[in-house]
């Protein structure tokens, strides 16, 4: 498949994989739950893909991956509605969207599997590592939004002023944009330093 996204390094898939569930990570707890569901779904779909790679066409594996992922998210909803109804209600539409996270992460790894043929264990480890990184990112975003929305992280008060505006959908896009700008500025500065030391 000649799709540019799947030619990127596996790590670069994290950004697009964040997209479907970014809005659901409104607190550390919500980010953790979403990340855990994604991790379980990736771990469930990994052996299926590893075993069938080369034997079953990619399109068929992709459909199977999506069905497995949505099954995991449905089961997770059942468990959450009993154990933590508040988080289950808050995650709402975002739980089934885990399917798309998993498809993006798995499809990237599948592409690499078809091109470079890494060993099954490497594919499995790479899938799990990407899902763990995604969980970390969701927990981080959840923590930032929790602080902005409530002024506290768990029971610890952090902000003395009300910044809940920046925790809402519009505000959080500006916050994420600003954080990305800082990251880009640091990357460009280190690039310039590197160029100067080489020159």
């Amino acid at each position: 498949m000649n799709y540019p996204l799947f030619k990127r390094p596996a790590l670069a898939l994290l950004f697009p994989a964040l997209a479907p569930t970014l809005g659901g990570a409104v607190s550390v707890r919500a980010g953790l739950v979403l990340g855990a569901v994604i991790l379980v779904a990736v771990l469930v779909t990994a052996p299926y893909n590893v075993v069938l790679a080369g034997r079953v066409p990619r399109a068929v594996r992709l459909v199977g991956t999506a069905v497995l992922a949505v099954t995991v998210s449905t089961l997770a909803r059942f468990v959450l509605s009993v154990t933590d109804p508040f988080v289950s209600e808050a995650l709402g539409v975002f739980l089934p969207l885990v399917t798309i996270n998993v498809v993006i992460l798995r499809q990237g790894v599948l592409y690499e599997a078809d091109e470079a043929q890494p060993r099954a264990a490497t594919q499995f480890a790479q899938s799990a590592w990407l899902a763990l990184l995604l969980m970390g990112a969701l927990v981080g975003i959840g923590a930032v939004r929790e602080v902005l929305l409530t002024g506290a992280l768990g029971q610890t008060a952090i902000l003395a002023i009300d910044l809940s505006f920046f925790g809402g959908p519009g505000g959080v896009l500006i916050v994420v944009g600003s954080l990305l700008a800082v990251g880009q500025a640091l990357r460009l500065a280190s690039q310039r330093r590197g160029d100067a030391s080489h020159g």
Partner: peptide
């Protein structure tokens, strides 16, 4: 500036459009 172009600009633009639409 280069550090603002691309994804950061897209997100800030989206954020401001979101506030306007609200």
């Amino acid at each position: 500036p280069a550090w603002l172009r691309g994804m950061p600009l897209q997100f800030m633009t989206l954020g401001m459009i979101a506030l306007a639409l609200q």
